[in-house]
Design a protein around this nucleic acid. Structure first.
Lengths: 107, 107
DNA sequence: TTCTTTACTGCATTATTGCGCAATGATGCA
DNA sequence: TGCATCATTGCGCAATAATGCAGTAAAGAA
């Protein structure tokens, strides 16, 4: 049993979010649950790659999953991740705006 | 000039946050600006390691920095990162609570 | 000038991550 | 039973990231 500090737990969860393919999957699942066989064709990657990303997000508590026949359905179990992404977008936007301002000021 | 997609920009910023040492520095700077020479003794790492983390966060727009003599002062330029961390903490907390609930239910 | 302090950079090493192919397990159908 | 489909796991490779030592640059004091 390893005892993790607060910053390590935070970093761990942020790490799960910090990957473009995983974010793409999250946005795709935003509309509702999807079978892995529906997620795969959306992505250009090998199914095994997608599977690992899905497992990682499930283990982190972000996704839920259920089995139905041969298919496995995933859904957003932790919708607050989109709040996080909304904040990230706000921050990115002000970065861009600030950079634009600096460029204008330098002319 | 590389054009980055939205999920790639988001992942990039999240990646900067997803590191325990960097989070530790952020929390330390929460009270106000600090000289690198004040940050270093707080951490156990080599000053060069801390320097790289500081540069990374500055480049990401999270930290500001100013030079004063030989010292370099850093401060939180993007306080919304703490909003992000607050959300992350909320999510972590419900994960723990859910796990506790599952354990109780399995007895 | 020389010495000291402070912060950063170059470089090599190590650890981690994501990827893709192949193989495996699980389910349903003929 | 044999076969096909779907999802996952094993394994090796390449790219990335963090680390630590050594060296450099800048500022100030003796």
């Amino acid at each position: 049993m390893i005892k993790l500090k607060k910053v390590e737990l935070e970093a761990q969860l942020l790490e799960v979010l910090a990957q473009p393919t995983r974010l793409k999957i999250l946005y795709f699942l935003r509309d509702g649950e999807r079978c892995a066989c529906e997620i795969n064709p959306m992505m250009r990657e090998d199914p095994s790659v997608i599977s690992r990303h899905l497992v990682k997000m499930r283990d982190a508590g972000i996704l839920g999953c259920r089995k139905e026949g041969v298919s496995i359905y995933y859904w957003i179990k932790e919708p607050r991740v989109f709040k996080v992404l909304g904040l990230i977008d706000e921050i990115l936007l002000s970065s861009v705006q600030e950079r634009a301002h600096d460029i204008r000021a330098s002319l």
